[in-house]
């Protein structure tokens, strides 16, 4: 495994939605790397741009949205880095990458499967699209994948429809479909948000095992800090379309640098916290994307905000320890303003 060179490198990605009313800067200068075999967790509250980031990587951004700047470098064949932003979203090459090399586990498995075809049909179709195998072979691979993700009696289940399956099984089938072509990068968009804790634990364990077996890299998106702590090797903390902090999971949880990460970690109740105690809170709420503050996006809620600095210029993401980077003026003076 070559850990020196990343599998995916997102550089200063900007994806904007131009609406009649103005621009929504859904993703505004996001950078992070994914190394082969690494689980990168992207954590952030609703609307911070997690889904738009991964939709940009897959080049499936819907119409008023557009990648306006930045690079998405993907190690395509061997060592050559391919900039996905330069490809046509509908081109043959992009279609091959999507599905065969980068696969998505979507947020809502109910919506991701067609209700009129059996799950087997849909998994086989995905295999046939990207691999030179016969229909029988495709079916065998599909059954194998279903068995691998822990679907009981896959020979029988392969002919069921998605709505016949329970939430947990449906999510497993979705994972089987994503794995069907042995992708190098698996992207999971809140795969456990819609399911219960016991099922969530099953899915997380499954993803961990599969990751170890296949040595695929995973981008795991969630708003749940507990899930991130359990699954990720490396964490990207996002807020309002920007990366606040990145670092190895242990450092993020035990030595957070950015004021947002620190405050967020303190404000969540845990099963070990004392009953009835008052939690430290982050004042205010996430601004609406049309009312984005100028300067550091977090400054209206930051207790360490420095007037004159934080509310006038935007801090850039810079290394602040050996392993962590943060975009905060407490640590450096670099800005992202032109």
């Amino acid at each position: 495994m070559n850990n020196q060179q990343p599998l995916l490198s997102v550089r200063n990605l900007k994806t904007y939605f131009s609406l009649d009313e103005g621009q929504v800067k859904a993703v505004d200068g996001v950078s992070f790397d994914v190394n082969p075999g690494q689980v990168v967790g992207i954590v952030g509250e609703s609307g911070c741009g997690k889904s738009v980031t991964i939709k940009s990587i897959l080049r499936i951004i819907q119409k008023p949205g557009k990648i306006v700047d930045g690079q998405i470098l993907f190690r395509h064949n061997g060592d050559s880095m391919l900039d996905l932003t330069q490809l046509n979203a509908q081109s043959e090459q992009m279609r091959q990458i999507r599905g065969a090399e980068i696969a998505l586990i979507p947020q809502e498995p109910m919506a991701a499967f067609s209700p009129v075809h059996t799950i087997g049909n849909q998994i086989e179709e995905a295999i046939l699209l990207h691999q030179p195998v016969s229909k029988q072979q495709a079916r065998k691979i599909a059954i194998e994948r279903l068995r691998e993700v822990g679907v009981p009696s896959p020979e029988r289940r392969i002919d069921s429809y998605s709505w016949e399956l329970s939430g947990g099984l449906r999510q497993r089938a979705m994972i089987a479909m994503a794995l069907s072509c042995n992708p190098k990068l698996l992207i999971a968009d809140e795969p456990t948000t819609a399911i219960d804790v016991t099922t969530q634990a099953q899915v997380l364990n499954l993803l961990r095992d599969l990751q170890a077996q296949h040595d695929a890299a995973i981008i795991f998106i969630t708003h749940d800090l507990g899930v991130i702590a359990q699954i990720a090797d490396f964490v990207v903390v996002m807020y309002l379309g920007r990366v606040m902090e990145t670092g190895p999971v242990d450092d993020i949880f035990h030595n957070p640098q950015h004021p947002y990460t620190k405050a967020l970690l303190k404000s969540i109740p845990t099963v070990t916290s004392e009953s009835g105690s008052r939690l430290p809170t982050i004042e205010g709420a996430i601004p609406h994307p049309f009312n984005r503050p100028a300067g550091c996006p977090f400054y209206p809620r930051c207790i360490e905000m420095m007037p004159g600095t934080c509310n006038t210029s935007t801090p850039s993401l810079q290394p602040v320890t050996d392993t962590q980077s943060a975009s905060c003026f407490l640590y450096h003076k670099q800005t992202d303003d032109e």
């Binding site: 009649d20 009313e21 004042e283 205010g284 049309f290």
Partner: peptide
């Protein structure tokens, strides 16, 4: 929760914004 001076400033948290 907080004294009145520390209440969130008016108008920064609207759930629906109709700028159009």
């Amino acid at each position: 929760v907080s004294d009145p001076q520390n209440l969130p400033p008016t108008g920064d948290e609207a759930a629906v914004v109709l700028p159009d």
